[in-house]
Amino acid sequence: MLDLHYWPTPNGKKVTILLQELGVAYNIVPVNIGRGDQFTDAYLKIGPNNRMPVLVDHEPADGGGPLSVFESGSIMMYLAEKFGKFWPQDVRGKYEVNQWVVWQMANQGPKTGERGHFSRVDPKHGDQAYAQRRFNDEVHRMYGVLNNRLYDRPWIAGDDYTIADMIAYPWTASWELQGIDMGEFQYFKRWWDTMAARPAVVKGMAVVAGPPEDPATVTPEERERRMKLLYNQRARPAPTA
């Protein structure tokens, strides 16, 4: 059995799309990142970066005990290799996909996340105009990177649908909220429309982790606790012997 420690964000949905495409059984373990579940000592043992998702494979190929994998890109490569789909293993095909998985992890995801963060910053923290402009421009540039990549091929890595496509799509699902004019990026739009119509993508994007929390049930004290826990994080002290 596969346990996916998950919350329905773009980083979580990358993995659920792949699991749906693979058609394999998996179990969702909710990690409420707004509440701070990712900071518990138990979660730290499998997710040392205190982020979501984490995959735990209870039947790894080596026959040993449960194997945990953190970081969504690594999880996707692990699953694609385990099940022998969506990731070619010849040297050229493999690294054609790898470079786009790394591109998404190092560029598209972080820059889009920063755009969202600085667009929501409380005015009490000062003028955010430069940060907002920088990350708006970076997100726009990322759409251009994909558009230029897709002008002469159906999928990001070439002729075949791979984890490179699955990992990039969730961060583009809210393109309207990101201020993107799809009319600027016709090749990206063709790819996006194709992705959005795939049944497994639809199912993967719809995976939830329990009922949504009612904000009215969160006390002021709990909101304050969460703010201190989730924002302006610094290094955690190392465990003592």
Rank of each mutant, 00 (worst) to 15 (best):
N32L: 14
Q104E: 05
V97N: 13
G36H: 06
P48S: 13
R35C: 03
H58K: 12
A61M: 08
E81L: 13
E96S: 13
T40G: 15
P110N: 07
V54H: 00
P66V: 04
G65Q: 08
K111Y: 12
G84D: 07
L55H: 11
R51L: 14
A61N: 05
V91I: 15
N50M: 10
Y78R: 02
N49S: 11
P53G: 10
T40A: 15
Q89A: 14
M77H: 05
V97C: 14
M76S: 12
S72E: 01
E71F: 09
Y78D: 04
L67A: 04
G84T: 03
Y43A: 02
P48D: 04
R35T: 00
L55W: 02
R51T: 09
D90H: 04
F83R: 06
N98M: 13
E71Q: 13
D62L: 11
E59V: 12
D62Q: 10
F83K: 04
V97E: 06
M105N: 07
R35P: 03
Y78L: 02
K94Q: 09
E114F: 15
A42R: 05
G65N: 05
V91A: 15
N49H: 09
I33C: 15
E114P: 10
H58W: 07
Q108A: 14
T40M: 14
V69Y: 00
V91G: 13
V91S: 15
K85T: 07
Y43W: 03
F83P: 03
W100V: 03
S74H: 09
W103C: 08
P53N: 05
W103L: 14
P60F: 02
P88R: 02
I46K: 03
E96T: 11
Q38R: 07
A80R: 01
P88E: 09
P66D: 03
W87G: 05
Q89K: 03
E96D: 08
H58R: 14
T40L: 15
V101R: 12
D37E: 06
V101N: 09
P110M: 06
W100H: 11
P88A: 06
K111F: 08
F83Q: 05
F86K: 05
G73D: 04
D37R: 08
A61C: 07
V69W: 00
G36P: 07
